[in-house]
Write a protein that binds this DNA or RNA. Structure first.
Lengths: 214, 214
DNA sequence: ATTGTTTAGTGAAAGTTTTCACAGTGTTAA
DNA sequence: TTAACACTGTGAAAACTTTCACTAAACAAT
């Protein structure tokens, strides 16, 4: 289910990291890089780097390692192959605003083009270059602006309602920050980021680790 | 490496979800729950629920399913077994503030007790019940306040410096929101949340999914 | 009591991801 | 030209995670 073209979910995540890294290296004028250098930067192993790069069908036999511009172009073409996307963000609270400013500074292929909230005091203005609308205009704007992805930053109890609205508006992917799992139609891809769970996980493993050795 | 007491990393994440869910159900006065109901709430399978619960050594043969208070207590004791933690947050930007307000409303066992930033205008005040200090007081406060975990919400270029400072101050776990992998000593557990990567991943899979069928 | 039904617990299978280890090859140096 | 080296590509093994499928037990109904 999550394996298109033989590229696994995990590999896609790392490809996004490779892309960021390579693009930085390119700006510094570097031309070539070895798998073990990439691994060093990313904190994984050379074998994994090579397998990831292999999985997108990249071939570059050279003693100098990978050609950075070439590899970057290739990774970019894979990651972009899902098409262009315009994004809606729902929930203009602290987290929502943080993501707006954090995300809309960079990036051209992916942009948050509209934000929504139920609270009227948060609406009808522009935050980080993004217009804010009341929730009941969601469907209209999603269709009008050709929005295909949604980011949910509303409190837990409202998240499912928002997800339903997004799905009804025809969105195909959701990034959910609310601390609840969403029920969505099969054809909507959902990714969750659960900050509380992440901290609890760190607390558990950090504690355990300290108790033992390693 | 990430498998203490036979409990896998993934299971720990789900246990945190079970705990939240069960605690909500308990407040509603529910007493028992079946594995298939838990699975329904969490969007996974009954078999996985049972395996997770089994892995913490919980036994409760009853035709009525799991006893909620009992199971909750047990999960809680596992998740708390990493010990209590006081948390420092570094980087009082939009994201940092969002996490402060988001996190410090609830939760007692884990609390963000100090925030730090290089920017003097963000410092020496209280945000969401959390005192803000300049960076150069980090070590002193970490030791004085018995802080054991750190949350990094600074921009990418500063993240490694902050991580080094945290490690030097004796912290054992880090949650890193900066879009760069960190190099840390072996005895520091690091978890990363990469918002940009998450969005790129959704864009990829949502696009692919739409192109094909399911 | 007996029987039927439904559920938890769990060994084993299946699926996924990472790592190992080595063959083949471009590159450099002699 | 040849030899030594270091790196990629990759089959196969290992490690990890999820799912299947069955056993035994609790409970309800008779």
């Amino acid at each position: 289910m999550n394996n298109l073209d033989g590229i696994s979910e995990r590999t896609i995540e790392r490809l996004a990291l490779y892309r960021r890294l390579l693009s930085g290296l390119l700006e510094k004028g570097l031309e070539h890089i070895y798998s073990h250098q990439l691994a060093e930067f990313l904190g994984n192993t050379p074998a994994q780097v090579r397998r990831d790069i292999m999985s997108i069908g990249h071939v570059a036999r050279s003693k100098k390692g990978y050609d950075i511009p070439e590899l970057l172009t290739h990774i970019d073409s894979i990651l972009s192959s899902g098409g262009d996307h315009r994004i809606a963000l729902i929930g203009i609270g602290n987290l929502g605003r943080a993501i707006l400013s954090y995300f809309n500074q960079q990036h051209s292929a992916l942009r948050i083009v509209a934000a929504f909230d139920n609270d009227e005091t948060r609406v009808n203005r522009v935050i980080s270059g993004c217009r804010c609308y009341p929730m009941d205009e969601l469907k209209e704007k999603v269709e009008g602006e050709e929005i295909t992805l949604g980011i949910i930053t509303v409190p837990g109890p409202s998240a499912q309602i928002v997800a339903d609205a997004l799905a009804a508006a025809g969105i195909t992917g959701i990034l959910n920050f609310a601390p609840v799992p969403l029920k969505t139609p099969e054809d909507v891809y959902v990714e969750r980021i659960d900050i509380t769970t992440a901290i609890e996980k760190v607390a558990f493993f950090a504690g355990k680790w300290r108790q033992k050795g390693t």
